[in-house]
Amino acid sequence: MATLIGREIHLASRPTGWPTPDNFSLVEAPVPAVGPGQVLVRNRFLSVDPYMRGRMNDVKSYVPPFRVGEAMEGGAVGEVVDPGDSALSRGDLVLHQSGWREYAVLDAERTSALPPVPGLSPSVYLGALGMPGLTAYVGLLDIAGMQPGDQVFVSSAAGAVGSLAGQIARLRGASRVIGSAGTAAKVAYVRDLGFDAAFDYHDGPVSQALAQAAPDGIDVYFDNVGGDHLAAAISRLRRNGRAALCGAIAGYNAETPVPGPANLALVITKRLTLRGFIITDHRDRMPDFIKEMSGWLREGNVRFNETYVDGIEHAVDAFLGVFQGTNTGKMIVRLD
């Protein structure tokens, strides 16, 4: 029997500052044979996410760095093509972390079939029903403790996480939801999702735009950006305001440390709570999240967008595009 060959993306070198295509390589490699307790999966959808930039650096973090010369990893939805001796069936769809490749051999005991979502692509498990959705849900409700009547500001509001966080805030009774985005088209998209106000952060200082959008201040900030967005939010947060610090994409590709907000003294005087979180610490919330988000999606109360890039050979383009703002909603690499 001929050896199955699959293509995968390797980390070729570690970047300094912004990553470039030269930091990656597209490699053809033999797919390992399926052993006892394993299944072979053909990936159909791959996720590319901002946090992966941190794994390209050889530094200690909450997840190990990618290894130079080896395949990268990430969320993926794959189709079982060889179930081996497992209880899975050929054609079952599974969610796993062996992305950035066309084929993956997985441990069957850690793999379960995904239930179909009528009317939606299975890629929804990489976005609205996956890590981005859970991040928005937990960050807003558990970390920031949003309450009905709160005024909420979400940065990077046209992205996979921010677009969902804003809609969840609206559904949970926020009195006003404000978002920032990077283009006029994205601002229009955010407003169409039901945000009460949105602004393009390229149009002027974020502090001024937020002050105009929230003249009475805000109670909750969902931070995907850091930098000037966090500083602006600290200035506008009212007494006992809360911020969920999810990401700081403004500094992910910086070659020198990005200065922090210069107004941290306000955290003391206004009794603010700024809390960072890593979503993998909150997997126990997945059942509640799936139940509530599934209902919202089914009823049309939550909408989401996916930006598709086709082919493993374009996975790097998709990843770099996340930092260049080419996506609206979740960036997905489609291998069908």
Rank of each mutant, 00 (worst) to 15 (best):
S175W: 10
N240Q: 14
T111W: 04
F153D: 02
G194Y: 07
I178F: 04
L106I: 09
D142V: 13
S13K: 15
N224D: 04
R67Q: 15
Q97G: 12
E79P: 03
A184I: 02
D317V: 04
A231F: 00
D310W: 02
G173F: 08
S207R: 14
T3W: 00
R53M: 06
V80A: 07
H314N: 15
F45K: 03
R236V: 01
N224S: 12
Y308S: 03
F66Y: 15
D336L: 10
D82K: 05
F66D: 02
V94Q: 07
P115A: 15
D281I: 00
Y137V: 07
V41N: 07
G91Y: 11
H10P: 01
A174C: 03
I143E: 01
G251N: 11
L245V: 15
S112W: 07
V48D: 03
K291H: 13
A144H: 02
L106W: 10
K186H: 11
V161E: 00
R191C: 06
G149T: 10
R191V: 01
S98F: 09
V80C: 11
L210P: 02
H10T: 01
S112N: 09
M1A: 13
G78M: 06
V80G: 06
D82L: 04
A244K: 06
V39G: 01
A211F: 07
D223W: 03
L141D: 03
R236D: 00
D192L: 02
K330L: 11
